[in-house]
Amino acid sequence: MRILVIAILVAAIGWAAYWFIGSSAQERSVNRWLEQQQNAGWVANSSNVNVRGFPNRFDTIISDLEIADPNSGWAWSAPEMQFLMLSYKPNHIIAQWPQAQTVSTPNQNITVDSAEISASVVFRANTALALERFTASLDDVKLISNQDWNSHIQSAILAMRRTDASEFSYDIAFDALGFTPPSDIKAGFDKSGILPETFQTVSVSTTAHYDAQWDRLSVEGNLPTLTKLDITDGRAVWGGLELQGTGSLAIDAQGYPTGKLTVRAKNWKDMIKLAQENGAIDAGLARKLETGLGLIAMLAGNQNTLDVPLSFANRMTSIGPIPIGPAPQIRRPRLNN
């Protein structure tokens, strides 16, 4: 019994020492990162960094956090940011944003008000901290600008996980309900007023292939480049308009796609009308599209719903055999820390 008591005491002392060493390392790591950003010319301030949760948790609380890039004029501030993890599983982190935070741009300040914004991240147990899986959830998020506009999203979930489809590939799913865009954007897009204020749903399920893995090193430098996108299902519903798509796209070094998507469009004539009103296509092309696609829809037996191949080649976008304009360019953002 005496040996058992001694063993328990030694284990308890050892675990306490591990926690205090680990918590101190966490505090130093956060403060060192803030200092690195300051040395790189950024504003990176916090009034306090505190790690609590003894004995089984490392919960890092960063108070009065302010991050700003003077060169771009972008900034973010929050009264508190939390990073939560189990002390015996430090490669799984839960991040919790505060209910109120502020994003500033060169032109405006945007208040972000939410019921919840959180994320769960699991890294592989290696020095590079390669991403294994990631899930972020948003609940009742409101954006309020000092430029007299606001936006709202009822709920959204973004999930990403490493897959064995190729060396650097990830399954990505996004599902959003009740997205209300800013009224001026909606008015500019929908000049005829045929759409309601709110998107019913937007969802995407895809496998994304990159030229490198997502890890600590990639986020600190240049982000991995997207090389291929396999879309299992994509769907957007806005009022009476509905789009669904599947297909595969290869992305070249300049970010232009090559490949095909099979697209189903409900109330497609209204989509052509909106595209013409916004200047995406001219009146002549709109008439040609309506005539040609109308024939396809009639042969299929449903004049309101259209199933067509959307193809991308030579930096051009085509619906069936009809070119409709330049292909979109997917640009890789860069992080310069």
Rank of each mutant, 00 (worst) to 15 (best):
Arg287Trp: 04
Ser118Phe: 11
Met271Leu: 13
Ala115His: 00
Lys260Tyr: 04
Pro309Met: 01
Ser155Val: 02
Arg264Tyr: 01
Asp59Gly: 01
Asp175Phe: 10
Asn302Phe: 09
Met298Trp: 11
Asp139Lys: 13
Glu80Asn: 05
Gly292Phe: 11
Met316Arg: 14
Ile157Ala: 08
Pro326Asn: 06
Asn39Asp: 10
Ser192Tyr: 01
Gly221Pro: 01
Asp184Pro: 02
Ser104Ala: 14
Ala212Pro: 03
Ile3Met: 12
Phe174His: 02
Phe58Met: 15
Val122Asn: 07
Phe189Ala: 15
Gln26His: 11
Thr102Arg: 06
Ile67Ser: 03
Ile153Lys: 01
Ala187Lys: 07
Ser72Ala: 10
Ala156Gly: 13
Lys269Arg: 15
Gly193Met: 06
Arg315Trp: 01
Leu295Glu: 10
Trp214Lys: 09
Asn45Cys: 02
Ser63Leu: 13
Lys186Gly: 03
Met160Tyr: 06
Pro323Val: 14
Arg331Phe: 03
Asp252Met: 07
Phe83Glu: 06
Ile144Asn: 07
Gln200Ser: 11
Asn91Lys: 12
Asn50Tyr: 15
Arg264His: 10
Gln147Arg: 14
Ile13Gln: 07
Asn56Thr: 06
Thr207Lys: 09
Ser104Gly: 11
Val237His: 09
Ile231Ala: 04
Lys273Thr: 15
Thr180Gly: 00
Leu65Met: 10
Val10Glu: 01
Glu27Asp: 10
Ala165Leu: 12
Thr258Met: 06
Arg235Lys: 09
Thr207Val: 11
Gly255His: 04
Asp140Glu: 10
Ala12Val: 15
Gln26Asn: 13
Thr317Phe: 02
Ile6Cys: 15
Tyr170Val: 15
Trp268Gly: 01
Ala11Asn: 05
Gly41Glu: 04
Asp171Gln: 14
Gln37Gly: 06
Pro326Ser: 05
Gly325Pro: 10
Gln96Lys: 10
Thr246Phe: 05
Thr232Ile: 11
Thr105Ala: 13
Pro90Asp: 08
Ile110Tyr: 01
Gly41Trp: 00
Leu4Pro: 04
Trp97Lys: 02
Ser46Ala: 12
Asp270Ala: 15
Ile251Glu: 05
Gly22Pro: 06
Pro257Asp: 12
Ala253Gly: 03
Lys266Asp: 09
Phe134Ile: 12
Asp64Ser: 10
Leu217Gln: 12
Ile13Glu: 13
Lys89Ile: 00
Ile324His: 08
Ala130Glu: 13
Asn48Gly: 04
Trp15Gly: 09
Glu242Asn: 07
Val103Gln: 03
Asp175Asn: 14
Ser192Arg: 13
Val121Trp: 00
Ala250Ser: 08
Val141Gln: 02
Gln37His: 13
Ile231Phe: 01
Ala265Met: 15
Arg2Glu: 06
Pro70Leu: 08
Thr262Ala: 08
Asn146Pro: 01
